[in-house]
Write a protein that binds this DNA or RNA. Structure first.
Lengths: 339, 339
DNA sequence: CCTCATATTGTTACCGATAACATGTTACCG
DNA sequence: CGGTAACATGTTATCGGTAACAATATGAGG
């Protein structure tokens, strides 16, 4: 009587090899589609693998080849249509290369980003994609020490860690302010999160202030709706709290479309006419801006393109290209009915 | 003159061990905080590790211990506030256990789900979380063969693969239809994606039909806005295309809040008064439902709780609990101004 | 001064796949 | 018919941690 087979041990290539009376090496080659293996053999191997319920062990492969098959991606939030689109663009393009995304979200905290970088680097990612150009010193040191290509997306940092795929928040704001000024809107207010908690929003604010100064508009009022992330309800409650004081301004420039939408509905509830009494603009070309009533003037940002262009940059890197790329995908002013 | 150190090789525990003149085992223990190692030794080891820029190799650990530290999570879409919330609830709760999420999104396709299951199983996840109870036979076979705990979330499948954390779409619809009927709305229409492409929506539709029959309402009209996923613009364009015909109904029950919002704004543009001429309801308690004007009557679904409860189930599983859990987190009718 | 528990560190083997190299077989050439 | 290229498969060592077990040192108790 022999020992019963251990039902808890996983099926390995060795088991498959035994079943077809071949070496594990041949099984490995057959399953990966190596052309040197005889077609008959390949078929037999595949049949045996299926029959035994063999499941390939990517961990072992990653360990042996020292290639994890991972690309680490760190986003501020996953609950944001724009970032989600970037994620999708990246995923779709990376599938073809057999790469998988290892996702982390920081909740807009650089400290959490640092912890994530540390955690994700331990997984040996073949590249790491970060959102924005603002990081802790420790993060920068970690990334400099690791031999991993870095891509920063969504902004155009002045001091890039490596490659960059993004757009200029300042340029976008310049277009937007010019449009508002052309329409006779001179008294602007900016509604966003506390700038320290949202660097991207802060960059938009800076762009707004610079553009306003360029056009000799009076200095815009800055309204902070609390720490990032802020969304529809924050936009709404700020305007509700301000009441009719919002009409001190010609235009309310919001850090994002959801915020703008909240602000707009609050205005409507207060009986303030948009855009007659106040213009409202958003940022990001979220679906709500195109469907709301009135449609919200916004800035289109090609979020999914940021993802796919990033994937293309990664392909180049894996193909041996080393010189840092700096890609500006641009943005586009999208006129709605609120300005 | 000695050979220069190979600058490309990664720093391993062996290197750290050499630096402090100890065995790699001691380094391993020190870095993991094993209490048996002398405090002085631990400090020396940590200092050397930092100094050498040592980065822990989770891949090697995963390989050796046969524990990947991964929980595979498969969602239909990441660009959906509800699923994103579930993801966040899960992540937040799992961080404490040192587990990482390996995310996949199916785009509402069971075939893509199958491919993802295959791919993710190869990473040796310690558990796998699927959305919904509808899977291909091959997927079911794969999961049955793998010795991995399975949790299905967001629905209450009649034939669960393992554990379940969800709510009853049918129950939710019963409440909703009763509310509408109480308000004198008897002629209902359901606006959703093509049922074959959206099982969750189909479950809601089934619930609606059953509830309507129970209350002796005339059979609701079913309107399909195309393959899943559908969102604001689909809701809007369906209503726009129908024009004033929508007022053939008392109430338009939408598969989700975004769809309801689109339908509502289209009504407004057509000059159809909501709720006077037609009630509109959504599903999911998205932010837009609470902020829009009028606020949309909807069903609250505790998305983040699904995530955290799922994490709790996983903890139980890792602690040895084996009997399948079946958790109904319920849902809640949230009255707005559109019904 | 010996015994034995406690504290600390070391040794060995191994997780599963695969790169690099070696071997065996067939086929075709002059 | 010997030689060699082309094809197909096998052997060995290895990636970086860590479980299991072994070994040594230290100190308390008798």
């Amino acid at each position: 009587m022999t020992t019963p087979p251990d039902m808890t041990r996983r099926v390995t290539m060795r088991d498959v090899a035994r079943a077809v009376d071949m070496s594990p090496m041949t099984v490995s080659r057959a399953l990966r589609g190596d052309q040197t293996v005889n077609p008959d053999t390949r078929e037999k191997v595949q049949a045996a693998a299926t029959q035994l319920g063999y499941v390939y062990d990517t961990t072992a492969q990653a360990f042996r080849t020292q290639k994890s098959g991972f690309v680490a991606v760190i986003l501020p939030s996953i609950n944001n249509a724009n970032f989600a689109e970037t994620y999708r663009g990246l995923t779709d393009a990376l599938v073809e290369s057999g790469l998988q995304i290892l996702l982390g979200s920081t909740g807009y905290s650089v400290e959490k980003e640092e912890a994530l970088v540390r955690q994700l680097l331990a997984r040996n990612p073949q590249a790491i994609v970060l959102t924005g150009g603002h990081h802790t010193d420790e993060t920068r040191a970690l990334l400099a020490g690791a031999r991993v290509p870095v891509v920063e997306v969504w902004d155009l940092p002045s001091d890039p860690l490596g490659h960059v795929v993004g757009f200029s928040n300042a340029d976008a704001m310049t277009d937007l302010v010019r449009h508002l000024a052309d329409g006779g809107r001179r008294h602007l207010a900016f509604l966003g999160a506390e700038p320290e908690t949202d660097r991207r929003g802060a960059a938009r604010l800076d762009g707004l202030l610079a553009a306003a100064a360029d056009l000799n508009l009076p200095p815009p009022k800055v309204i902070a709706a609390g720490p990032a992330p802020i969304s529809m309800r924050h936009g709404a409650s700020v305007v509700t709290d301000m009441g009719r004081d919002v009409t001190d301004f010609n235009a309310l420039v919001c850090v994002s479309d959801p915020v703008a939408f909240g602000a707009m509905t609050a205005c409507q509830r207060l009986g303030i006419k948009v855009p007659e009494q106040i213009a409202i603009t958003g940022f990001g070309h979220f679906e709500v801006a195109a469907v709301s009533n009135p449609r919200i003037t916004t800035v289109g940002v090609y979020a999914s393109q940021i993802g796919s262009r990033t994937a293309a940059v990664l392909q180049d890197i894996f193909a041996g290209q080393t010189s840092p790329q700096f890609i500006d995908v641009g943005s586009e002013l999208i006129l709605g009915e609120t300005s």
